[in-house]
Amino acid sequence: METGIVVVEKVAGKSTVTRCFCKCPLKLIIPTKVGFPNTDAVWIYTLSYGGGLVSGDSICCAITVGDGCTTVLTTQASTKVYKSVGSKCSEQFLEARVGGSALLAVIPDPVTCFSTARYSQKQVFRVTSDSSLLIVDWLTSGRHENGEKWDFEFYKSTNNIYLEGDRPLFLDSVLLEQGSCSSIAERMQDYQVIAMVILMGPQLKHLQTQVQGEVKKIMSTQFYAPGMKRKSEHCQIKPALIASCSAFGPKSVGVVVRIAAMTTESVYTFLRHQLASMEPLLGASPYC
């Protein structure tokens, strides 16, 4: 049962919300003035009552982006997942259909799971061969300034992209569970943030090449083979931000960037910088 439904279609040549429904614990806000007035993009903010999800909350949202439309789905602040009561899990589902020549940008703030929290998220995107998609999915270790580092019980995030119906194009699930063999903190070492950025489709082709080049440039100074001359002492400690890019899909239709970082702010800076060229398409620069 959906708690949110949005349909965006072309009306008189402009991307327009033709249907919008939401109910507790989800609230959708669709401001009409985001960025330049002459850009054809709909911005949708998803809000939850109380700034986060309490144990047992379940949000299920369906969004349809019609042919040729541009839609941005974002949040106003990080999604907090509060402590779990018993073994109850908080859940969010998103099912998105992106039409031909349409662009959907899902650019939320990170998910922050408090200690003992249990959270599961699944996002399914159904695209055509000329749809464009920008997805940012990220997670922090918790209230790490308070000492809660990777202290939640369970986190699962699935992002699946299917092409023309049921052809799997990108299937990704990350599961972090306090385990018998190793704790989450052990697996994450000193890193406090894990992020993934997916760039796909013709409208983001240029950005894909640009991000691949930039990430390569950033990372090439971070690796030193044993015995190689080091420029300075700081090269002997692990990098504060690690990023890697991979192309995926037939004819490398998409690029996925995965990031691990020691601070949330460094990932905001990275995203702001890398996605700045989206501004003409979306009417405003992501994460500004």
């Binding site: 699935t158 990704d172 699930s173 697996r187 890193y191 971070q222 690796f223 083979a225 995965r258």
Partner: peptide, 22 residues
């Protein structure tokens, strides 16, 4: 049910192409 359980490992492995000498 297939899923990643060590995302940091995956990110680091993805950097293999950036190594100058390997």
């Amino acid at each position: 049910e297939a899923c990643q359980t060590a995302p940091l490992l995956d990110i680091v492995q993805g950097c293999h192409g950036y190594l100058f000498s390997k």
